[in-house]
Simulated assay, not measured.
Amino acid sequence: MHKGVASRPTSVAPLAPGLFTGPASAASVTGNATYFAGLGSPYGGCGLPQSALDSQNFVALNVFDTPGQPFCRNGSWVADRYDGATLTMLVADSCADSDAWCRDDPNHLDLAQNSLNRFAKDGLPVGDMYPGHWNNRRISWQFVPAPGCAGDIRIGFIQSAQPYWPVIAVSHLPNGIHGVQYYSNGTWHDASMDSDLGQDYRIYRIGPTSTSPTQGTQYRIRVVDASGALVAGGRTYRFALPSSCANGCGPAYTTVTYTTS
C-alpha cells in the first residue's frame, strides 16, 4: 500500500545512462522507476483522492532507505531514444511496499502509468514508451517548485469529517506542505496530522477554559510549506464546516470556500 508523504512537485526524466540536467539550485538524484495504475480508494498516501490532485501526472515517493542489494543487477544500462525525455510530476503517494524496489532503492519512484507516454522530448510527447518500450528504466529526478501554480491554496474536508472530528486536506501549494496551524482561545496551535496522510490535518477548536478539543464549526488556519515558511507570509484562512457535514462528510473531498486576512 502506498502511503504517507506530503505533496511536492518533482521533475522526472527517464535515463539510461544519460543524466537529466535540472536547475543548479536543486539536487538531482538517480534511481530506478516502476509504475502503478493509480491512487487507492478513497485516498493516496498524502490524503487526497486522485480526482482532487492538481495534476494527473503523479508519483509515489519511496519512504525507505534500507538498501540490501541493487534493484537491477547482473546487467548493464543501454541508451535508447527516450533518453532525456522529461515530465514534471506531483508527489501524491508513497511506496511503502515490502518489495525490493521500495526497500532497496532509496531514490526509487513509482510513476502513474497513464503519465508514461506524456514524457516529452524535443517539445513533443514520446507517445509510445509504454507498454512496448518501458522495459526497466532508470531515472534522475529532483524537487522543483510547482510550475504555473497560480491562485491560492485549496481546502476541503475529508470523508467523515464532522464537528468532533474536523479533518481538512490542504493542496495547491507551490512548495508543498509541512504543517497546519489553527487559531483557538487566543493562540495558534500546531494541528496534528491525520494518521500519516501528509496533507490531512485535524483542526480541533480549543475552548476558552479547556485544553481538550471541543465541538466547533468555524475555523481559522495558516499553513507551513515544505521549507518551513508560512504560506503567503502568514496569511490566515477562515472557513466553516459545511452543513452537509454536520453528521459526517459523505464524499471523499468536500471543497470549502474561505476568506483571508
Results as ranks from 00 to 15, higher is better:
28 S>N: 13
174 P>E: 10
26 A>T: 11
83 D>L: 14
104 D>W: 02
140 S>M: 11
128 D>R: 08
36 F>P: 05
226 A>Q: 08
195 S>Y: 10
221 I>Q: 00
255 T>K: 14
199 Q>L: 03
186 G>K: 02
29 V>P: 07
251 P>C: 07
7 S>H: 08
232 A>F: 08
90 L>P: 00
112 A>H: 01
69 Q>G: 11
102 C>T: 01
1 M>Q: 13
78 V>W: 14
5 V>T: 12
173 L>V: 10
109 L>A: 04
212 S>K: 07
68 G>K: 08
179 G>Y: 09
144 V>F: 03
206 I>S: 01
59 V>N: 09
230 L>K: 06
71 F>N: 09
111 L>H: 02
9 P>R: 10
153 I>V: 10
258 Y>S: 02
67 P>A: 10
62 N>K: 10
159 Q>S: 09
231 V>P: 00
80 D>H: 12
37 A>K: 15
171 S>I: 05
159 Q>V: 07
197 L>T: 00
68 G>M: 07
238 R>S: 13
202 R>Y: 10
42 P>C: 13
208 P>A: 07
193 M>Y: 05
189 H>V: 01
42 P>M: 11
34 T>N: 13
124 L>F: 07
7 S>N: 15
246 A>S: 13
134 W>Y: 15
136 N>E: 12
176 G>S: 10
193 M>G: 03
258 Y>G: 03
96 A>R: 09
114 N>L: 07
140 S>Y: 04
44 G>Y: 01
